[in-house]
Design a protein around this nucleic acid. Structure first.
Length: 954
DNA sequence: TGCGTCACG
DNA sequence: GACGTACGTGACGCAA
C-alpha cells in the first residue's frame, strides 16, 4: 500500500527532460473511461445507430467528450505531453477477495450498454489515444499507479473524472478535472468536500463507508463526524488506538466495536499505487489521430455531426485531412502484398519470443493459431502457436516438436525449442491482454486448446464467423483455405503436404520445424489478412450487431460446453448392443426364410432385387438415381398391403441403425481422460444460424421410438446430480405468429391453448373439446408444413392422403389464415428481389437458389426462404439464451453447467439440491432471450424437467 | 466418394 | 401448368 501524496519526491535522476520548454517533461492526463461510459449513458437519451439500431448513446457521449478534451488540451499553454484512457476490467478484483460483498449489490450494466463497452475502447484507439486496463484491477488503481509514478518522477498529473474516490490522489502535482461540471479540483476543493486534506481522504472514507460500493465503514458516522475525528486525532490509526478517549458514549463504542470493519474499509477504499502499469509511460505520448481511421470509425457509428466537426478541425486543432463524408478506401486483397511463406520466423529462444510479444503489444491487433496433435480440441495437446503481427510478418513458436519414433541413422535435426511452460507463461499475458485484439480462424478450437493450458484468450475475433455473417448460404464452407483462395487469391499449404496423408499421416509434433513454421505462420498471416479485409464489411453491410451479439460470444460458450462433456453409461449401452444383436440375428433368419435365400439386409440394392424382381412387388417410387426405393415409407406401404418381409426389414433396419450409429459408437466416444463424451459444435456450418454437432453428433439421439429412448436413458448425471432438459415449446410456430402477424395464432398462444387443436378448430369449425385425434394430427402436419414452405405433394405424403385432398386443406388453411399467405408471398418476393432473407434479429441468410434457371430449384429456394427466417430466428433466440446463461448461473450462485444444445433444447447438469433453482434460472433466461431488442407479440414458453437420465428429463 | 437411409429439431 | 417436393443437420453401410 502506498501512502497518499504528501511531500513531493525529488525528480528521479534518469528522468528525461525536454529542454525546449519549461516545466516538467511529463504532463499526463488520465481519463477515467469507465466513469465516463456510465455518465454518458445515463445523461444522454437512448440513441441508436440509424442503419441497424445498435445502441450508441454512450459511445456518442464518450466521443464528444474525448474530442472536446483533445481540443481544449491543445488550446492550453501547459498542454499535456502524455494521455491515456483507463477502463475497469470486468473481472473480480483483489477487493472482492478482501470482502465478498464489495460492490456486490450493483446491478449488472443495462442491456443497451453492454455492446458499447468494446465500442468505447475502439473509439479511444480511433482518436489515437492509448486505452489501458488490467484484469483484476479497477480503473482507479491503474490511475493511482500512474499518478504516483509520474508524480514521483517530478511530472504532473491531471485525472479527468468526477469520482470522489480518486480525490485521495490529489496533491501538489496531481489535480482532477470534472469535465461534466467543468471544475478543476485541487487540494482546496478536496478539503471542501471531505473536510480534510487529500492525504486523509482515505481515513474519512474508511469511517463513513460508501453505500454505493458496499464499503461498510462505521455505522452512524458520516463525512462531518469522520472529518471532525480525523482532524482531532491526526489520522485513522491514532484515532483507533485512542478511541477510548472519545467523549461521546455512542461514538466511542462504535469505533471500538467496529475497528476491524473500519480497517477493512480502509483496504477497500485505498487505491493501490503498486498496481502494475499496463504500458510504459513512454507509450502514452500524445499523438494526433490518423485522420482516415477516425473518420471511418465515426462514419461507422453514424456520428456524422461529430465527424464533420472533427473534419473541420473544430476548435483550432490540427484537422485530420480526410473529410468525414468520404468513406475510406476499402482494403483490397493486394494491399498487403503476396503471401510469402519463406519470410516467416521460427521462434526458438526466449529473447526472440519476447521481441515478438513486444511487437504484438505495439500492433494492438494480431492473428494467432494453435497447432496440436489431435483434431478434437477436448484431447488436443499443444504443438505450437503462431502469431501474425502485420500482414506478411508472422512467426511460429514450436513447443512440443520431437523426432518420430525409431532410430535415426542420419544426424537428427536440431530441435532446440523453448520449454512448454516458458512459452505458456510468456504468451498468457499477451493472449489475455484486454488491449490486444486476437484474431483467430475458428476461434472455438483455439479457445478450448488454450483453456486447457490455463489461458483465457480475450478479446478475440473470428474470421470464420465474420465470413459466415456476411455470406451465410453462399458457400459450403467458411474454412480458411476456402476464404484464402476466395479473398486473397492464395492457396495455403495443404495440411497433407506437411503431415502426409492417410495412414502415414503424422502428428504435427513430428513435422520438422521448417515446414511446420511455413504452414503454421501462414495460417496466422492469412487470418490477419482476411480480418483486415472482411471485418470492415460488417459495418458497411449493417451486420456488425449480428456479429457482435449472436456470433462473437459463441466460441467461448461452446468451448466450455464441449470441455464439460456429458456422462454416458457404457454398461447400459453394451447391454443394449447385445440385445439388439440377438434380435437382428433372429430377424435375419426370418428374412432369408421369406426371401427364399440369404442376402445382405443392409444393402438397399439387394433389397430391391429381392422385393421387386424376385418377389414381384410393385415399387412405388424411384430414387434420385432411378433405382427403386426401399425407404421406410415404401416398406410401410408394402407391409400395410399384407407382405411380411417389408415389416421384418423395417424392424431390422431400426435395430441396425440404433446399434451401428449409437450403442456401439457412443461408448467408443467416451474420453478415457474425463470418462465423458465431448461432442464438437460447429458454428458457421448451417445456412440458417443453427449449430451442428458431430464426433459424435449429440443432436440426433433417438427419442421418437421406445427402442430408441433406451439409448437416451444411457445419458446420465454424475452421482448426486441430475440432468435438466429445458426446451422451447413450439418456438417456430410462435415466431410465425409474430412475424406473420396472425391474430388467431397469437391469441391461441397468448391464451396458452393447444396450438394444433386450435388450428384444427379454426380450419374445420369444430370445437377443441372432444376433437378426434386424427383431426388434430392433420392440423399439426399442416402447421409443420407451413413452417417448411408447404406443398400439396409434401403434405399428401406426410399424411398418406391423396394430393387433391391435401391441396384442399391448404386452400382452407390460407382462407382461414390469410396473413400466412401474405407472409409467404412477401418473403418469397423479398428473397427473389434481394437474394437473401433476414431474421427478426438481422441475421442474413442468402438463398442463391432463387436465381436458378431450374424451376425446381427456384421452388426449392422459395421454400427455404419461407423457412429460414423462422428457423433462423429460433436459432438466434437460443443463442442469446446460451450467451447469457453462464453469467446468469454465476449470479444465482449455481454450480450447474450447460452441457448440450439441441436446436430448441438446452441440457444442464446440476447438483440435485440445485434442480429447482436451475429450472427457474434457465426458464427465465430462455423465455426472455429475445428481449430487449425484439418485443415478441407472443410469449415464449419453456418446459423444463430434472431427472437422473436424459430420457426421463425430456 | 456418392448414394440411400434414417436419427434428430 | 410446368417442376419434383416438404426446412435444417450428421453418421452409417454399401457399392463402386
Amino acid at each position: 500500500m502506498t501512502d497518499t501524496p504528501s511531500a513531493a519526491a525529488p525528480p528521479l535522476p534518469d528522468l528525461p527532460r525536454d529542454n525546449t520548454q519549461d516545466g516538467p517533461a511529463v504532463r499526463l492526463y488520465l481519463v477515467d473511461g469507465s466513469g465516463f461510459i456510465f455518465r454518458a449513458f445515463h445523461a444522454l437519451p437512448p440513441l441508436t445507430r440509424k442503419s441497424d439500431g445498435l445502441p450508441i448513446g454512450a459511445v456518442s457521449g464518450f466521443c464528444n467528450m474525448l474530442w472536446k478534451l483533445l481540443v481544449d488540451m491543445k488550446a492550453q499553454t501547459d498542454a499535456p505531453t502524455h494521455l491515456a484512457v483507463v477502463f475497469d476490467h470486468s473481472e473480480k478484483t483483489f477487493r472482492n477477495k478482501l470482502y465478498d460483498k464489495y460492490k456486490a449489490h450493483r446491478p449488472p450494466p443495462p442491456e443497451d450498454l453492454i455492446p458499447q463497452f468494446p465500442l468505447v475502447r475502439e473509439a479511444t484507439l480511433a482518436f489515437g489515444v492509448p486505452s489501458l486496463e488490467l484484469p483484476g484491477y479497477e480503473a482507479d488503481d491503474i490511475i493511482a499507479a500512474y499518478a504516483c509514478k509520474v508524480r514521483d518522477m517530478g511530472g504532473e498529473v491531471r485525472i479527468v473524472s468526477s469520482d470522489k474516490d480518486l480525490m485521495q490522489l490529489v496533491g501538489d502535482r496531481v489535480s482532477m478535472l470534472d469535465t461534466m461540471k467543468n471544475l478543476l479540483i485541487g487540494p482546496e476543493q478536496v478539503m471542501e468536500k471531505f473536510g480534510v486534506a487529500p492525504n486523509r481522504v482515505v481515513d474519512v472514507q474508511s469511517l463513513c463507508g460508501d453505500s454505493v460500493d458496499n464499503v461498510p465503514g462505521a455505522p452512524g458516522i458520516g463525512i462531518k463526524t469522520a472529518a471532525l475525528l480525523i482532524n482531532e486525532y491526526g489520522d485513522l490509526d491514532t484515532l483507533l488506538a485512542r478511541a477510548g478517549e472519545i467523549k461521546q458514549d455512542k461514538r466511542r463504542q462504535t469505533l471500538i466495536d467496529f475497528a476491524d470493519q473500519i480497517r477493512l474499509s480502509r483496504q477497500l477504499v485505498q487505491l493501490d499505487c503498486d498496481t502494475p502499469l499496463p504500458s510504459p509511460i513512454d507509450d502514452l505520448k500524445v499523438a494526433d489521430p490518423t485522420a482516415e481511421v477516425l473518420a471511418a470509425f465515426l462514419e461507422e457509428m453514424g456520428l456524422h455531426t461529430l465527424g464533420r466537426r472533427v473534419a473541420s478541425g473544430g476548435g483550432g486543432t490540427r484537422a485530420p485531412a480526410a473529410p468525414a463524408t468520404a468513406a475510406p478506401r476499402p482494403v483490397t486483397a493486394t494491399d498487403h502484398g503476396p503471401v510469402d511463406v519463406t519470410k516467416y520466423v521460427c521462434v526458438r529462444d526466449i529473447e526472440t519470443l519476447d521481441a515478438w510479444i513486444a511487437k504484438a503489444h505495439r500492433a494492438g491487433v494480431i492473428a494467432f493459431d494453435t497447432e496440436t496433435d489431435s483434431l478434437s480440441s477436448a484431447n488436443a495437446g499443444l504443438c505450437g502457436v503462431s502469431l501474425a503481427v502485420a500482414p506478411g510478418e508472422a512467426c511460429y513458436i514450436p513447443v512440443g516438436h520431437e523426432h518420430e519414433g525409431g532410430l535415426a541413422f542420419d544426424a537428427p535435426a536440431d530441435l532446440t525449442q523453448i520449454t512448454h511452460n516458458e512459452v505458456i507463461a510468456r504468451l498468457k499475458p499477451l493472449l489475455e491482454d484486454p488491449s490486444v485484439l486476437k484474431v483467430a480462424q475458428n476461434a472455438k478450437y483455439d479457445i478450448a486448446v488454450l483453456s486447457r493450458q490455463g489461458i483465457n484468450v480475450s478479446p478475440i475475433e473470428d474470421t470464420m464467423l465474420i465470413s459466415y455473417v456476411l455470406e451465410a448460404g453462399l458457400h459450403k464452407s467458411h474454412g480458411m483455405d476456402e476464404l484464402s483462395k476466395r479473398w486473397l487469391g492464395h492457396e495455403p499449404i495443404p495440411f497433407k503436404q506437411v503431415a502426409g496423408t492417410g495412414k502415414a499421416q503424422k502428428s504435427f509434433k513430428h513435422v520438422p520445424l521448417e515446414p511446420a513454421t511455413c504452414y503454421a505462420a501462414e495460417d496466422a498471416d492469412v487470418t490477419l489478412r482476411l480480418y483486415l479485409l472482411l471485418r470492415p464489411r460488417l459495418n458497411t453491410e449493417g451486420l456488425l450487431t449480428v456479429y457482435e451479439t449472436l456470433e462473437r460470444p459463441m466460441p467461448a460458450v461452446l468451448a466450455q460446453m464441449e470441455i464439460e462433456g456429458i456422462r454416458i453409461d457404457p454398461d447400459q449401452l453394451a447391454r443394449l448392443s447385445h440385445d439388439f444383436s440377438v434380435r437382428m440375428t433372429e430377424l435375419e433368419a426370418q428374412a432369408y426364410e421369406l426371401a427364399g435365400r440369404p442376402f445382405n439386409l443392409g444393402s438397399p440394392k439387394q433389397i430391391g432385387e429381392v422385393l421387386y424382381q424376385e418377389m414381384g412387388l410393385a415399387s412405388k417410387k424411384t430414387t434420385a438415381t432411378g433405382a427403386q426405393g426401399t425407404d421406410a415409407s415404401i416398406l410401410e406401404d408394402l407391409a400395410a398391403a399384407g407382405h411380411e418381409l417389408p415389416r421384418v426389414l423395417l424392424d431390422w433396419r431400426q435395430l441396425s441403425k440404433l446399434k451401428g450409429t449409437y450403442t456401439d459408437n457412443l461408448a467408443a466416444a467416451i474420453s478415457p481422460r474425463t470418462n465423458r463424451v465431448h461432442t464438437s459444435y460447429a458454428l458457421g456450418a448451417t445456412t440458417t444460424g443453427r449449430l451442428s454437432s458431430s464426433d459424435p453428433n449429440l443432436q440426433n439421439i433417438p427419442v421418437r421410438t421406445e427402442e430408441g429412448r433406451k439409448i437416451r436413458k444411457a445419458f446420465i448425471a454424475e452421482p448426486g446430480h441430475v440432468l435438466i432438459s429445458a426446451d422451447y415449446s413450439q418456438i417456430e410456430l410462435r415466431l410465425l405468429a409474430h412475424v406473420g402477424d396472425i391474430p388467431q395464432l397469437k391469441k391461441a398462444f397468448l391464451e396458452g391453448q393447444d396450438i394444433h387443436a386450435a388450428t384444427a378448430s379454426e380450419m374445420f369449425g369444430v370445437p377443441i373439446e372432444g376433437m378426434p385425434a386424427e383431426t388434430r394430427r392433420r392440423a399439426k402436419a399442416i402447421n409443420f408444413g407451413i413452417v417448411y414452405g408447404i406443398s400439396a405433394f409434401g403434405l399428401a405424403n406426410q399424411l398418406s392422403i391423396p394430393q387433391d385432398e391435401a391441396g384442399a386443406y391448404i386452400k382452407t388453411y390460407f382462407e382461414r389464415f390469410p396473413g400466412i399467405r401474405t407472409y409467404m408471398d412477401r418473403t418469397k418476393q423479398g428473397a427473389r428481389a434481394q437474394g437473401f432473407v433476414t431474421t427478426i434479429f438481422g441475421r442474413k441468410v442468402n438463398i442463391p437458389a432463387v436465381y436458378s434457371k431450374s424451376q425446381a430449384e427456384r421452388a426449392f429456394g422459395d421454400r427455404a426462404a419461407i423457412n429460414a427466417p423462422l428457423q433462423g430466428a429460433a436459432a438466434d433466440i437460443i443463442r442469446r439464451a446460451m450467451i447469457r446463461m453462464p453469467a446468469a448461473l454465476k449470479e444465482s450462485g449455481l454450480k450447474a453447467r450447460m452441457l448440450l444444445q439441441v436446436h430448441d433444447e438446452l441440457v444442464f447438469e446440476a447438483p440435485e439440491a440445485e434442480a429447482d433453482a436451475l429450472i427457474n434460472v434457465a426458464k427465465r433466461v430462455m423465455e426472455h432471450a429475445a428481449e430487449p431488442v425484439v418485443a415478441l407479440s407472443v410469449p415464449l414458453v419453456v418446459d423444463a424437467r430434472a431427472a437422473k437420465n436424459w430420457d426421463d428429463a425430456h
